[in-house]
């Protein structure tokens, strides 16, 4: 097996650039297809693929934890939830009048332009002199291991420095999940079962 050290660094850079361009352009194509397709099932599948691609993108820019969350929630759970929601409605979206799409399209273009304009001010990727890396992050990197003894800095911040905050967040997410489960119901008395029975009763 080839060792990365034996491969010229220019080859590695070329491949990384190719992967960057490939993943981002496929995300763009998928987003355009989501905007154009009318079959709801295809839309659900495409949104799953979009989540998977963006999760890959997060891993490529070294935000592995965010990518992991996106893959589990975006590509896994929300695909299943959207399929369940599809059961309660029709299978194809209504065709819009073309002029009705004009205003949302304009808002999207303007928002995108503003965000692109804002990226000019951002520091370079991995810039050691950027404000985010210069002051507090150094402090945490130096004090993390003697203070807490967990080698992963992100884990030590989440679970110890702001442990109460994380605990509260977990509580909020749990309460939200229980509330949704209570609203939708389970088994015979669930919302989808009730609706299906109603449909069958009519026929």
């Amino acid at each position: 097996m080839a060792d990365p050290a034996h491969i010229a660094s220019s080859d590695i850079e070329l491949s990384v650039v190719l992967i960057d361009i490939g993943v981002l352009s496929m995300m763009g194509v998928t987003a355009i297809a989501i905007a154009r397709l009318r079959s709801l099932f295809a839309l659900v599948m495409l949104s799953g693929v979009y989540s998977l691609l963006s999760a890959t993108w997060f891993v490529i820019v070294d935000a592995v934890d965010v990518g992991f969350t996106e893959a589990a929630v975006g590509a896994g759970i929300s695909t299943a939830l959207l399929l369940g929601a599809m059961l309660l409605t029709v299978r194809t979206a209504k065709e819009d009048k073309p002029w009705k799409r004009l205003a949302p399209g304009l808002v999207c273009v303007v928002t995108g332009a503003v965000l692109l304009y804002a990226t000019i001010d951002l520091p370079g990727f991995g810039d050691p002199d950027s404000p985010a890396n210069a002051y507090l992050a150094q402090e945490y990197l130096q004090r993390n291991y003697p203070d807490i003894g967990i080698p992963n800095v992100v884990t030590s911040i989440l679970a110890s420095y702001r442990g109460f905050d994380t605990f509260g967040e977990t509580g909020v997410v749990f309460i939200a999940g229980v509330a949704v489960a209570l609203l939708l119901g389970f088994g015979e008395r669930s919302l989808s079962a009730t609706l299906m029975n109603k449909k069958r009763g009519k026929k």
Partner: peptide
């Protein structure tokens, strides 16, 4: 290089699937 070829082959495969 081999790596760039592997990357390109993967992306061609994904585009076909898309």
């Amino acid at each position: 290089s081999l790596l760039a070829a592997a990357t390109l082959a993967l992306f061609v495969a994904i585009v076909l699937l898309l």
